[in-house]
Amino acid sequence: MDKKHYFEPEDLKKFGNIGEWQKPMADKFFDYYGEVFKEGALTEREKALIALAVAHTVQCPYCIDAYTSGCLEKGADEEQMMEAVHVAAAIRAGSSLVYSTQMMNHAKGIVM
């Protein structure tokens, strides 16, 4: 194997092969996965947009590719997709910033 990078786009297609080493768990996972992304109380498009946002948070290049296509397939446009990523980014930013209250509390306890 002449593998040059940690992430190869081709590897995404091999995802299904994880069952080769542990089939019952893989089957359960893929069933569950399929069930989650079906149209339900949320539409397929809404779920794809959430997945795209989460993919940016976990910074998974496979998921980003897959759900960029997925969002477009489900009828989302660029503006909606970018807004979804901003939601992820805002939560990330906010979840760092909110800890500053701890910093402030601590600082207030030790400064004059």
């Binding site: 149209e39 498009r45 397939e73 009828g75």
Partner: peptide, 10 residues
């Protein structure tokens, strides 16, 4: 270059 999604949902 992508496929159309579910027709009813679209």
């Amino acid at each position: 270059t992508f496929l159309p999604g579910n027709q009813a949902s679209l």
